[in-house]
Simulated assay, not measured.
Amino acid sequence: MPNLRKLLYPFSVLYKGLTDLRNIGYDYGYFEVARYDFPVIAVGNLNTGGTGKSPMIEYLVGLLIEEHKVATLSRGYKRESKGFQLIGSDDNAAKSGDEPLQFKNKYPELLVAVDADRRNGIAKLRNEQAEVILLDDAFQHRKVEAGYYILLTSYGDLYSQDLVLPAGNLRESRKGAERADVIVVTKCPPEITSVEMEKIREKLKANDKQKVFFSKIEYSNKIYGKYDIKNLNDMKQENYAIVTGIANPAPFIDHLKKAGLELPHLKFPDHHIFTENELSQLDKYEGILTTEKDFMRLKDSRLKGKLYYLPIKTEIIDNAEQFDSAIKDYVNKNEV
Rank of each mutant, 00 (worst) to 15 (best):
H68R: 14
E128K: 15
K187T: 10
D157E: 09
K257F: 04
K203I: 01
S96Q: 09
L8M: 14
Y26P: 03
A116W: 03
N332L: 13
D27N: 13
K236W: 01
K222Q: 15
I183K: 00
L14E: 09
D283Y: 08
P166D: 07
S220P: 09
K205L: 08
L4F: 15
P264A: 14
N334D: 14
E172C: 09
L279G: 12
E335F: 13
K216S: 14
R142I: 00
D234A: 12
V61N: 01
R35L: 03
I317N: 08
I242E: 00
G176M: 04
D329A: 11
I223M: 08
L46A: 00
E276L: 12
Q129S: 14
N231F: 04
I317H: 08
G50W: 04
K267H: 09
D162S: 03
T314M: 15
K16H: 10
V43K: 07
L266D: 02
D324T: 06
G245M: 09
V70F: 13
E131C: 09
T19Q: 00
Q161T: 11
L152E: 05
A146H: 03
S154N: 02
E32T: 15
C188D: 05
Y219M: 09
P100W: 08
N23S: 13
Q237A: 07
I317R: 07
I87F: 11
N92S: 12
E315D: 15
G287M: 10
I122S: 06
Y240S: 15
G225W: 05
L158T: 12
R171V: 10
N92T: 10
F274P: 00
E292D: 08
E191F: 12
V185L: 05
F268Y: 15
S160N: 04
N3W: 10
V184S: 01
K230A: 10
Y240I: 01
V112K: 02
D91G: 03
L263R: 03
G44N: 03
G88L: 01
A113C: 06
K199T: 09
P55W: 12
G156P: 00
Y155L: 02
D37T: 09
R5V: 02
K53L: 05
S74C: 05
S89Q: 15
T275C: 05
Q85V: 03
G83K: 10
I317F: 10
Q161P: 01
S12E: 12
K299D: 06
A94V: 05
K216G: 01
I217R: 06
P190I: 03
